[in-house]
Amino acid sequence: MDVFMKGLSKAKEGVVAAAEKTKQGVAEAAGKTKEGVLYVGSKTKEGVVHGVATVAEKTKEQVTNVGGAVVTGVTAVAQKTVEGAGSIAAATGFVKKDQLGKNEEGAPQEGILEDMPVDPDNEAYEMPSEEGYQDYEPEA
């Protein structure tokens, strides 16, 4: 019985440690998101679009440190934060509304985080759909 109880105690310690790591990862992701939003706020009209992409990228980098179902929630929060940063930029006159959601080359930025393969159960990952990809044929 002692062996059984000791095993359960060790398992509990492992769960607590994993929860603490997840909590730490979420806190880091939130900190990076805040950094990115402050970065966007300090940019001029020309830099705002690039700044919004930076927020998304920093958040995406930190999301990889967070495991399990938390990833889905962090990704949703990050996307809403990026959308909010863009709205703030438009409201303050840093950028025109028609410039939001495009990178410096004018290509749409939507789907940055949505296409990231995420499995809350950590069982399997699927690649994003290939609808947006084109076949590449090298020139002879």
Score class of each variant (00 low, 15 high):
1 M>A: 00
2 D>Y: 08
4 F>G: 00
5 M>V: 08
6 K>V: 02
8 L>A: 01
9 S>D: 03
10 K>A: 08
10 K>C: 02
10 K>H: 04
12 K>N: 01
12 K>Y: 14
13 E>T: 07
13 E>Q: 06
14 G>E: 13
15 V>P: 00
17 A>Y: 03
19 A>W: 15
19 A>Y: 15
20 E>A: 09
21 K>R: 15
22 T>V: 08
23 K>W: 15
23 K>A: 04
23 K>M: 15
27 A>F: 12
27 A>P: 00
28 E>G: 03
29 A>C: 09
30 A>S: 03
31 G>W: 14
31 G>Q: 13
32 K>W: 15
33 T>S: 07
35 E>G: 05
35 E>F: 14
35 E>N: 14
36 G>D: 02
37 V>F: 07
38 L>S: 03
38 L>D: 01
38 L>Q: 07
39 Y>N: 04
40 V>C: 05
41 G>A: 09
42 S>Q: 12
42 S>A: 14
43 K>F: 13
43 K>E: 00
44 T>K: 01
44 T>H: 01
45 K>A: 12
45 K>N: 01
45 K>R: 13
46 E>P: 02
46 E>F: 06
48 V>L: 13
48 V>Q: 00
48 V>T: 02
51 G>Y: 11
51 G>V: 14
52 V>M: 13
52 V>A: 09
54 T>L: 15
55 V>A: 05
55 V>P: 01
56 A>T: 12
56 A>K: 09
57 E>A: 08
57 E>M: 05
57 E>G: 04
58 K>I: 13
58 K>E: 01
59 T>P: 01
60 K>P: 01
60 K>Q: 06
61 E>F: 05
61 E>L: 07
61 E>Y: 02
63 V>T: 02
63 V>Y: 11
63 V>N: 01
67 G>Q: 13
67 G>V: 11
68 G>C: 03
70 V>M: 05
70 V>N: 01
71 V>I: 14
72 T>E: 15
74 V>Q: 01
74 V>H: 01
74 V>W: 14
76 A>T: 14
77 V>P: 01
78 A>S: 03
78 A>V: 12
80 K>M: 09
81 T>D: 01
81 T>S: 07
82 V>P: 02
83 E>D: 06
85 A>V: 10
85 A>S: 04
85 A>D: 02
87 S>K: 04
89 A>V: 13
89 A>D: 02
90 A>D: 08
91 A>I: 06
91 A>D: 04
91 A>G: 06
91 A>M: 14
91 A>K: 04
92 T>H: 03
93 G>I: 11
94 F>G: 04
94 F>M: 02
95 V>G: 08
97 K>A: 09
98 D>T: 15
98 D>K: 06
100 L>V: 09
100 L>F: 02
102 K>Q: 02
103 N>H: 07
104 E>R: 09
105 E>C: 03
105 E>K: 02
106 G>C: 09
106 G>A: 07
107 A>W: 10
107 A>D: 09
108 P>S: 08
108 P>L: 08
109 Q>G: 03
117 P>W: 10
118 V>W: 05
118 V>C: 11
119 D>M: 09
120 P>C: 07
122 N>V: 08
122 N>I: 07
122 N>E: 07
122 N>F: 03
122 N>M: 09
123 E>D: 12
124 A>V: 10
124 A>I: 02
124 A>D: 14
124 A>E: 10
124 A>F: 13
125 Y>P: 08
126 E>Y: 06
127 M>A: 03
127 M>W: 05
128 P>L: 11
129 S>Y: 05
132 G>Y: 09
132 G>S: 04
133 Y>L: 14
133 Y>S: 03
133 Y>F: 06
134 Q>M: 14
135 D>R: 09
136 Y>P: 08
136 Y>L: 09
140 A>K: 08
